[in-house]
């Protein structure tokens, strides 16, 4: 029975394989309360909306980052505007979420356990309104007082994501809207 040791090894592989992946030196960080704001500045109207329920998970070992937000969680000053945002533009019942998947440049240089400010590029793909496009932005991490904050800002061209602005609204809604994301990250503990 010279096969027995091999079987034992195979068994060990199967057991360790089903354990959670190694978190590595970097660890994982997350938030369920990222503040996302968007601004549309046009000749006739300034439109702002915000949400505090962006989700994000960052795996520092690999640099991978994923984020998602429910479109209908965005709050507008005007209720009707919010309704039209969901119904006419974002079609949130068809495309309930905006999702980003990508990775950070040089994650090994991000020592989020040490106080300081770190800047790095985030590159990946963003899916809004059912359309996926590449995007990149600079993310700033600030670590201090045992807290980790991350923020970024970027522009989104509305037409890139198949969101049509009718002629009547062309002066009210900007073609390019600015998004800002601010969040405190917490370490993701294994459960």
């Amino acid at each position: 029975m010279q096969l027995k040791p091999v079987l034992i090894i195979a068994f060990l592989v199967s057991v360790t394989g089903s354990l959670p992946a190694q978190t590595g030196a970097g660890g994982r960080y997350f938030t369920r309360g990222a503040a996302i704001q968007f601004f549309s500045d046009s000749p006739l109207e300034k439109i702002e909306a915000s949400t505090n329920s962006g989700n994000c998970v960052l795996d520092l070992a690999t640099g991978k980052l994923e984020a998602a937000v429910l479109i209908n969680s965005f709050n507008f000053k005007k209720a009707l505007m919010q309704e039209h945002f969901n119904e006419n533009y974002m079609e949130s019942s068809k495309f309930p979420k905006a999702v980003f998947k990508g990775s950070l440049d040089k994650p090994q240089e991000l020592t989020l356990s040490k106080d300081g400010t770190y800047k790095t590029m985030l590159k990946g793909e963003m899916t809004i309104h059912g359309i996926t496009r590449p995007m990149q932005t600079e993310v700033v991490f600030r670590v201090g007082d045992g807290k980790i904050f991350a923020e970024t800002a970027f522009d989104v061209t509305v037409a890139d994501y198949g969101i049509r602005i009718p002629a009547l609204m062309r002066d009210n809604i900007a073609k390019i809207v600015r998004l800002t994301v601010k969040s405190e990250l917490q370490e993701l503990k294994k459960t």
Partner: peptide, 21 residues
């Protein structure tokens, strides 16, 4: 034995947190 790790590789990072939404 190799299946669990293969499955896990496709798993989203986001699925690690409870997506209340």
């Amino acid at each position: 034995a190799s299946m669990p790790s293969a499955l896990r590789a496709q798993e989203d990072l986001l699925s690690m947190i409870r997506d209340s939404a």
